[in-house]
Write a protein that binds this DNA or RNA. Structure first.
Lengths: 149, 149
DNA sequence: CATTAATTTTAGCCTGGGCTAACTTTTCAG
DNA sequence: CTGAAAAGTTAGCCCAGGCTAAAATTAATG
């Protein structure tokens, strides 16, 4: 076995699962509970689809589900949801710092946040922090960016 | 109609389609032609799946396909393929510059390359160029990165 | 508290994009 | 030029994750 390149818990989830957990996490964070309606609204899909997925999330131990009652995150589910939310925030701050159109930032972040390893997240966090604390560099880059009209 | 936020040709394709076109593009670039076997090998999927998708790509005008003969890119197909290859290169150079494990870089890039708008690509290109030309900054960041062990 | 509205769930369906097995066509070595 | 190997194709299947319509449950209002 010549080196398997795999961390202890490499846990990779489908983008869909991550989207649900992120959203549930955000809802609970924000209003204390997560209803099917709201999850559906935020993800832009039907309520029926949400119910389906929630049942799968329960079966896979990310969530505790009880018919007609709300949904609660398990420790594992909370971990994943928070993780994605974190990636979301880093990406958003990094891109928004350049003054990109918010809609575009949002779309790109939505797409990219599912594909970022710990290592890459560290790099992007570093870049974000550097830029947020280095106005000179930021100005220089934004000027160049404006030149690419 | 209060502003639809949409470029003339916003053309968004499925990740699968983009993967195929990128791969076909690379193969043609590299060896002058793209065979089903090679596409399958590079994407890590079966030849049958490739044949299927190639027929769809033909139907959608990305490729010209003739049974048992190879496959050729249309102008549109070439445009998309080259575009993805470009995003691939920028992301790879940006991340590799930080000395990340090549396998990780590859995986992250594979995932992210389908979700990057023109604007975001410009930003990342800018960052890549800045870092490649600013050894002092690069060293500083890599040092910090190493500190996150 | 009864009825209407809102929410949730179930049932059944559909599409994208994989797969294997079996068959056909092309290529190539002898 | 022939027959085996390689490449390509077809047929039929599967699964994730959407959807709608209709049924069930819970909430809210007159």
């Amino acid at each position: 076995m010549p080196a398997k390149r795999q961390e202890p818990t490499a846990h990779v989830h489908s983008p869909a699962i991550e989207d649900y957990l992120e959203q549930i996490h955000n809802l609970i964070e924000g209003k204390g509970y997560a209803r099917v309606v709201d999850i559906a609204k935020n993800l832009g899909i039907s309520q029926a689809s949400v119910t389906n997925m929630i049942q799968k999330l329960d079966a896979e131990g990310f969530v505790v589900y009880e018919r007609y009652r709300g949904v609660v995150l398990t420790d594992e589910g909370r971990k994943v949801g928070a993780e994605i939310a974190r990636r979301h925030e880093v990406l958003t701050r990094l891109l928004a710092g350049f003054g990109l159109d918010p809609q575009t930032v949002h779309e790109d972040v939505e797409g990219m946040e599912h594909h970022i390893s710990r290592q890459t997240l560290d790099v992007l966090t570093l870049l974000m922090e550097e830029l947020e604390g280095n106005a000179v560099l930021m100005r220089k880059l934004r000027t160049k960016l404006a030149g690419l009209a």
